[in-house]
């Protein structure tokens, strides 16, 4: 298991796409938004949490199809399925590797980018907390979607279509936590809910992902 995590991280780093690509995408989206909505600081300030959350979601989506597809193509997935490691564990470890290469850096960088969007100073801590609690759910849900579409030649677009609706509750609670944090209307409830979604996904979805992988390997 640990070996798999290290291998996935090493592959992400050496393939060059790992840490850099998701972050660069995140940055570009944040830079493009003011061009789209205009440089008005009050508007930007109001939408900053939402923009950061949606951008984080899209950046996480960007690298999802690589979670299983490469291992499926070169046969490593079939070998892992016959190796003495549970496929559920493989799914969870791969989701963890995805989170370390995308979710974690996004969480760390988001407050910095909030600066460019004139985010309310009160929002920084909530932004960080909600992303830290919510991005694990994005990775685990994404790994389920990636497992569903692993056998398809052009699964990328379908993957987004399947995964984005599943992201709705995480996005709602995550962005709501920041909004309520700024308005001082009680951010604890949405923060706990977003954490609950992450924990629930981590506990249950690897089983669904493993079941789906076994079907795709048949």
């Amino acid at each position: 298991m640990k070996a798999l995590l290290w291998r996935d991280l090493a592959l992400a780093v050496r393939a060059g796409g790992g840490f850099g690509l998701g972050l660069a995408f995140f940055l570009i989206v944040v830079v493009l938004v003011p061009f789209g909505v205009g440089p008005d600081r009050t508007i930007l300030s109001a939408i900053a949490p939402g923009i950061l959350w949606v951008a984080a979601l899209l950046a996480a989506l960007l690298s999802l199809d690589r979670i299983f597809a490469l291992d499926y193509e070169d046969g490593a997935l079939a070998l892992l399925a016959t190796a003495p490691v549970p496929l559920e564990g493989v799914a969870l470890v791969k989701a963890l590797a995805h989170w370390i290469t995308t979710g974690l850096p996004l969480t760390l960088v988001a407050p910095l980018l909030g600066f460019f969007l004139n985010m309310d100073p009160a929002a920084y801590a909530y932004m960080f907390a909600s992303l830290a609690l919510g991005t694990p759910a994005l990775s685990v849900i994404g790994s389920f979607g990636a497992a569903l579409t692993v056998g398809l030649r052009r699964g990328g677009l379908l993957l987004s279509l399947l995964v984005l609706p599943l992201y709705v509750p995480t996005l709602i609670f995550g962005a709501e936590a920041v909004r309520r944090g700024v308005d001082q209307t009680g951010a604890a409830a949405p923060l706990m809910l977003v954490g609950a979604i992450s924990l629930g996904c981590i506990a249950l979805l690897p089983f669904a992902a493993a079941a789906v992988l076994r079907i795709n390997l048949r």
Partner: peptide, 28 residues
């Protein structure tokens, strides 16, 4: 049991030694 086909799960970005030691670790 172990299964092997022409798709042998060798990662092009890793060295030969790293590839082999990964599969060794997976199998303890």
């Amino acid at each position: 049991t172990a299964y092997a086909s022409h798709a042998d799960g060798i990662k092009t970005a890793l060295t030969v030694a790293e590839n082999l030691s990964f599969w060794a670790q997976v199998h303890d």
